[in-house]
Design a protein around this nucleic acid. Structure first.
Lengths: 269, 269
DNA sequence: ATTTAGTGTATTGTCAGGCGATACGCTTGC
DNA sequence: GCAAGCGTATCGCCTGACAATACACTAAAT
C-alpha cells in the first residue's frame, strides 16, 4: 500500500530513491520506462523518441530495446518505420486478468447483468486517481477506443469513480479529488471540488451514482461500488446508456437495482 | 522477423545467446522471466515459487520482485498470501492494443460483424504455433476464461489457425504443425499431421475453415484469414456457434459470407 | 549532385552497481 | 513447542551493464 503512490502516478518513476533503496534495481526500472515510453504515443516510435520519452540516453535505449525485442515485448512496425509494443505483452495481460480474484468472481456476474440490461456494462478497478477498465461488455454501438481493456478514466468524474469515492472517508475523497488533474471531458464535466463532494454525498445517500455526460456527451452512466476485504471499495460496475433513448431518471430506476444486486454478488463481506 | 523464434516459443528465454550477444541485457531478461513466472500459475506465488519458475535464485527474485512491486507491476495478494501481477500491466496492454494498426482497423468491422451474426466473434493474431485473442465480442453465454484478452489457442487445431495456415506455403504449415505440441482438447481434436494438412487443403479450396469441436465440445467455429503486407496472413476472424442450434453446414453457409466480407475489409492489398 | 539530419546497428574499456551468500524476525501448522 | 516456511535486510566482490564513439544506410533539403 505504501508503494502504490509511485505506481498510481502512472508515468514517472525513478527518483532519488534509487540512492535510498539498495534493493531497487535501476536497470529493470529503465527497461520498464522504455516500455512505458509508448504510453502517450500515437504512432510507432523511433529509438531516439523512445530514449527521450523514457528519459534514458541513446545507448541505453538501444540496448534495452534490443533486449526487449528479442523477447517479443517490442516489435518493428509492419512497414519498418519504428518500434511498437509486442504481442508478448498480452501474455502478461492474461496472467493479470486470470489471477485477479475479483475479475474471476465478477465476470459471470457482469455477463449476466449485461444480458439483462442490454446496455454497455463495464467493470473498472480502483487505482487511486483513476479507474481502469478490466472487462467490457459492449452493446450495440461503440467507438474503437471504448472497447479496449486497460483504458482508464479519472475517478473524480466517472460514475464508477463516484461510487467508489462514496465508500471512502471524506478526507480520502478530498485527497484524491485535489490530486487529480481535473481537465473537463465535456462542458458538463464537474471540476469544482465542492460540486464533486456534493455528488459523492448524493451517491452515498442513494447507494449508486448517476453521471450525466461526464465523459461523453449523450451518455448517462450509473455506477455501483464493489467492495473487498474490510468493506473497502476496490472496483465498480458501470452501466452506460444513451440519452437519446433514456432520461437519466428512467435509466437509473431501471438499471440501478440490477447493478446493485450484481455488485453485492461480487463484493466480499 | 529473425528474432521471433525465441518469442514465439512463449515461455523460455535466456540461453547461451547471453554469451553470444553483447547487446543483450541479462538483468532485463531476468526481470521479464520473473513476470513470466505467473504464466502457468493458478494461485498467488511465493517468492520461492517465483524464483524456481523464473529460474533465478532467491536473492535475485527478491530484488526483482521488490523493484517490480514498487513500480506496480507486481502486487501482494489481498490476503497477503503471495504475489500477483499488478495493475500496471494493463497500461501496457492498452498501448499494445491501441497502437496495433490491425486492431485499429479491425475493431469496428468485427463489431459490425458481431451485430449481424449475433454469435461470438473474435479477432486472433497469428503468433507462430498459437493464435492470440486480441478482441472478443461475446454473445449470450460464455465461460469465464473465454472472455479474456490474451488467451491463446494452438494454430494447428483452431478455426482461425487453419484459415491462417491455408495462406502459407505447405512447408511452412508443416513446420508449424510438427513443432506444435498436439495435445487434443476434445476427442475430436485433429492431431494427425496428415489430417490437419487435409483440413488446411479444404480450407484453401473453400476460402474459410470449419472447425467442429476442435477446442470445445458442442462448438462449431468458422475461421477467415486476415492478410497484411505482401498478402501474408497476420490474423484471423473466428465466429463460433453452438451445435445445439446449428448444423455445421447451416452455420457456415449463413456466417461465412459475412465473415469473408469482414476479413476483406480489414486485410491489406 | 551533395549535404544534412535522421534512421538502426556495432564495438569496447571502465567502474558503477547488480549479484548472491548469509542472517534475521515472523507467522503458520505440526 | 519446534520446524519449516514466509518476506525482509545487509554487504563485500567482481561481473556485466554503461555510455562514448564510429558506421552504414535512407530520405529529404540544398
Amino acid at each position: 500500500m505504501r508503494n502504490t503512490l509511485r505506481a498510481e502516478s502512472g508515468v514517472r518513476y525513478l527518483s532519488e530513491e534509487q540512492r535510498a533503496d539498495p534493493l531497487f534495481t535501476n536497470s529493470i526500472a529503465r527497461a520498464m520506462q522504455v516500455l512505458a515510453a509508448f504510453h502517450h504515443a500515437d504512432h510507432p516510435l523511433s529509438l531516439a523518441e523512445i530514449a527521450t520519452r523514457a528519459g534514458v540516453d541513446r545507448s541505453a535505449a538501444q540496448r534495452i530495446v534490443h533486449t526487449l525485442r528479442t523477447m517479443g515485448y517490442i516489435t518493428r512496425d509492419a512497414e519498418d518505420r519504428g518500434f511498437l509494443p509486442g504481442i508478448r505483452i498480452l501474455d502478461h495481460t492474461l496472467d493479470y486478468l486470470r489471477l485477479n480474484p475479483l475479475i474471476q468472481r465478477a465476470t459471470p456476474v457482469i455477463l449476466e447483468l449485461r444480458r439483462n440490461v442490454r446496455e454497455r456494462v463495464d467493470l473498472s478497478l480502483f487505482d487511486g486517481q483513476r479507474v481502469v477498465y478490466a472487462a467490457r461488455m459492449q452493446s450495440k454501438r461503440e467507438t474503437f477506443y471504448a472497447t479496449l481493456v486497460g483504458h482508464s478514466v479519472p475517478t473524480f468524474c466517472s460514475s464508477g469513480g463516484w461510487a467508489i469515492l462514496a465508500r471512502l472517508e471524506d478526507e480520502a475523497v478530498r485527497a484524491i479529488v485535489d490530486a487529480s488533474n481535473r481537465q473537463p471531458f465535456t462542458p458538463r464535466t464537474l471540476t469544482d471540488p465542492e460540486e464533486i463532494m456534493a455528488e459523492v454525498e448524493a451517491t452515498r445517500a442513494r447507494g449508486y451514482s448517476i453521471a450525466v455526460e461526464q465523459i461523453l456527451l449523450g451518455e448517462v452512466a450509473i455506477g455501483v461500488a464493489v467492495t473487498g476485504p474490510q468493506g473497502r471499495p476496490v472496483a465498480a460496475i458501470h452501466v452506460a446508456g444513451s440519452l437519446a433513448e433514456w432520461t437519466a431518471e428512467d435509466f437509473s430506476t431501471r438499471v440501478a437495482p440490477l447493478a446493485l444486486e450484481a455488485a453485492r454478488a461480487i463484493s466480499q463481506i
